[in-house]
Design a protein around this nucleic acid. Sequence first.
DNA 1: GTGAAAGCGCTAACAC
DNA 2: GTGTTAGCGCTTTCAC
Lengths: 342, 342
Amino acid sequence: MVSIYDIAKEVGLSASTVSLVLSGRGEKMRISRETERLILETANRMGYIPNMSARKLRTSKARHIPEIALCWSPTQHSLFLNTFINVLQDMISSGEVREMRFIILPYKNGELEKLESILITNYFNGIVVPPVFQEDIDFLKKTNIQVPVVALFGDIDQYNLVSVDNRKVGKEVAEIFHRHGHHRVGIMQSEEKKPALSVEQRRSSFLNTCQAFKMEAEEIRGNLPGPVHNKVEEGKILAEKMIKDNDIPTALFIQNDLLAIGAISVFSEQGINIPEDMEIIVYGVNDMLEINNPPITSISYPTGEISRECILLMDKALNRPGTKPVRKIIDTRYVFRESCLY
Amino acid sequence: MVSIYDIAKEVGLSASTVSLVLSGRGEKMRISRETERLILETANRMGYIPNMSARKLRTSKARHIPEIALCWSPTQHSLFLNTFINVLQDMISSGEVREMRFIILPYKNGELEKLESILITNYFNGIVVPPVFQEDIDFLKKTNIQVPVVALFGDIDQYNLVSVDNRKVGKEVAEIFHRHGHHRVGIMQSEEKKPALSVEQRRSSFLNTCQAFKMEAEEIRGNLPGPVHNKVEEGKILAEKMIKDNDIPTALFIQNDLLAIGAISVFSEQGINIPEDMEIIVYGVNDMLEINNPPITSISYPTGEISRECILLMDKALNRPGTKPVRKIIDTRYVFRESCLY
DNA sequence: GTGAAAGCGCTAACAC
DNA sequence: GTGTTAGCGCTTTCAC
């Protein structure tokens, strides 16, 4: 990497002159226009990029602001990151937690491992990571990270955890359906090559509980015409298949809000009455569910609280490094509406 | 701020011993258990937080990775940030642009100024900022930022710009309505204390064009019962007001997807036929619009392209600092559906 | 087992 | 106008 010394050598001047010019104070310090031009040009030609670590180290009179890596995968719910940022700002400006900065480290589901070299360099004061696949969890388990880690999913002993209890959600939905006297229920989720582990946990727990209650439980599956990027569309396709196969359970658990919106629109078109013919509970949050006719019962991932607890935990971990990891399970929020009353 | 020297002095040992212990290599270097415990405890008690700038500077054999500030306000569309991250990852891993890291700097609409001290310290290799209110633009205009800046909105001569032409959108929608022979049209937007400047630009341009075409244009306004956080709900309220006042134009431009979903659900309940009684064009993107009955014509903010161009521009600016700022205007994407055919 | 010292890239005070 | 020098906080080599 090219430093100001390289530039200085190249143009036959001292590093301080180069520094002066590059930080835009050449004029003020009365560096000659010719020198200035030469330095700028050379820096440009040599592809100079200032090393912010050096600059910060040299000039910061104030304290160092902790830098936290925020590993992010595309399948996180889009609302989550926005919420996280809002909550962060509120908590910092209210003085509830110390100032900290989040650096985005993108990764793809199942490929968290690719960030290994970055994460183990210890170039961050902390790490926030929502693992999605088992591979990501396995990677975290086996990797020895020296800085505080807050995971947003997964069973990893050595790190802090803020999460929801997905198994409990699956179980509870089945219990509600059982309490309502259903004998034939269904569960619908997106047909991805590989589902997120959280989806899988809710699913298996739902199915197991149904079995325990002797309810016939069916998984809604459909052959999709190639990859479907649009979950609303996918919901429609799955619902159409149900109807075609005359496979209509009396209660349905839909694992995604967009999927639900698509499916429900088909049900209402096809004259399936909700909740009379079929009760519906949706995991996810979407204003649409509320204004649907009838309004749809939903269980939502508490983005605000998760963000809040995550930031709180990171703050504590920064202040008291080496303390035992904390596991914080946040309750999901049930909003009972007409599609499936309590 | 407390450094390893402070700790060393406190425990009466040398900085290198402290460093060894704190970086978890005490065992390997056969530091005594007692010393180790003492150092750890003292560091904890004194609130030691490692200075990553110093660590990076000292240990990085590799080149410095540019650090870009990403100013983010809560009103940015939630999908945008996710898209940005995905696009970023693709572009970096494909080698299209150099590696760079984004640091999130949250700000509230109109309060970008509060980031001034951070932004002018030059602690970042670049800055990406989507200003929302005029105050934010004014702040950027008057502030002398030394590093490359890519703005995602606003007329600011000295910085790069990647944006859409909001005025053109407003004008074009009015033109479509005129071409379809409408005489009485309407525009609906969220009743916020203070609208984003982009919304305002589309609005005034729409209204001006309507006037030029001698179309009667009406702004849909409603007294909301207190603050409405839910835009779908707000859309319903506004639509209900239209119906109550018997104020139904033959063509309507709705400036937000969620607003539209709420409004349209009311229209269809109340027997207003789309497009026969009223044509509708929506600014925004939502899978819902596509599966509505009838499907809704929409104009979407091209998050992917904007992200792409923004990252491309930043990459160029890093490689060639001091080159003239570029203004890149991206076309919005029209998807004509039944609610208003081309 | 622990300490001394060098040096990462940069800025700024001061010297000339 | 430009150069010399010290030092930001940390890690690491080498010495003892």
